[in-house]
Amino acid sequence: MLRLGAIVLNTSDTSRGAAFWSAALGWEAGANPDFLAPVDGGEATHLHLDRSDRTHLDLWVDSAAEQEAEVERLVGLGATRPAWDYPDGADFVVLADPDGTLFCVVDQSA
Rank of each mutant, 00 (worst) to 15 (best):
Glu72Val: 09
Gln108Cys: 13
Cys104Gly: 03
Leu25Gly: 07
Gln67Pro: 11
Leu36Tyr: 01
Pro33Arg: 13
Leu49Phe: 04
Ala79Met: 04
Asp107Gln: 07
Pro82Ala: 03
Val105Ala: 01
Thr45Ala: 07
Pro38Glu: 15
Thr101Phe: 10
Trp21Ser: 00
Ala37Val: 09
Pro38Cys: 07
Ser22Gln: 14
Trp21Ala: 11
Val39Tyr: 12
His48Asn: 04
Val71His: 01
Leu74Thr: 08
Gly100Cys: 05
Ala31Tyr: 07
Asp53Thr: 09
Leu36Trp: 08
Glu70His: 10
Glu28Phe: 11
Glu72Asn: 07
Pro33Asn: 06
Ile7Met: 15
Met1Gln: 10
Ser15Lys: 14
Val39Phe: 14
Ala90Lys: 13
Gly17Pro: 02
Ala64Thr: 00
Leu9Arg: 04
Pro98Tyr: 00
Glu28Pro: 10
Ser15Gln: 14
Glu70Ile: 09
Arg16Thr: 04
Arg54Ile: 08
Asp88Val: 15
Thr45Pro: 05
Leu74Glu: 05
Trp84Glu: 15
Thr55Lys: 05
Met1Thr: 13
Ala90Gly: 02
Val106Ser: 13
Ala110Thr: 07
Asp50Cys: 01
Trp21Asn: 08
His46Val: 10
Gly30Lys: 10
Gly41Val: 02
Val8Trp: 02
Ala44Lys: 14
Ala83Pro: 00
Trp84Val: 11
Asp62Cys: 08
Glu43His: 09
Gly76Lys: 05
Pro98Met: 05
Ala19Glu: 15
Leu74Asn: 01
Leu95Arg: 02
Ser52Pro: 05
Ser12Tyr: 08
His48Glu: 14
Ala110Ile: 12
Ala37Lys: 10
Asp107Ser: 10
Asp53Val: 10
Ala6Pro: 11
Val93Ala: 01
Ala90Asn: 06
Cys104Thr: 09
Thr101Asp: 00
Val105His: 00
Gly30Asp: 12
Pro87Arg: 02
Gly100Ala: 03
Asp50Val: 00
Asp53Phe: 14
Ala31Thr: 13
Ala79Val: 02
Ser109Pro: 13
Val8Ala: 00
Asp53Tyr: 12
Glu68Gly: 13
Thr80Val: 05
Glu28Ser: 15
Asp50Pro: 08
Ser52Asn: 12
Trp60Asn: 07
Gly42Glu: 07
Asp91Ser: 14
Asp53Asn: 14
His56Gly: 06
Thr45Tyr: 04
Ala44Pro: 03
Gly26Trp: 11
Gln67Phe: 05
Asp40Gly: 12
Val106Pro: 02
Ala69Ser: 15
Ser52Lys: 06
Asp40Leu: 11
Met1Cys: 10
Ala90Pro: 03
Gln67Arg: 15
Pro87Val: 03
Asn10Lys: 15
Gly78Asn: 13
Glu66Val: 05
Phe20Asp: 06
Ala29Pro: 15
Ala90Val: 04
Ser12Phe: 12
Leu36Asn: 01
Leu9Val: 03
Thr55Trp: 04
Val75Asp: 11
Thr45Glu: 02
Ala6Trp: 00
His48Gly: 02
Gly41Leu: 09
Met1Ile: 13
Gly76Ile: 09
Asp40Ile: 09
Gly76Thr: 07
Val75Ala: 08
Ser15Ala: 14
Asp53Gln: 15
Asp50Trp: 07
Leu2Tyr: 14
Glu66Phe: 10
Arg51Pro: 14
Ala69Gly: 11
Pro38Phe: 09
Leu95Asp: 02
Leu47Thr: 01
Ala90Arg: 09
Gln67Trp: 11
Asn32Glu: 11
Gly41Lys: 12
Ala69Trp: 04
Asp91Leu: 12
Val71Arg: 01
Val94Cys: 03
Thr101Asn: 07
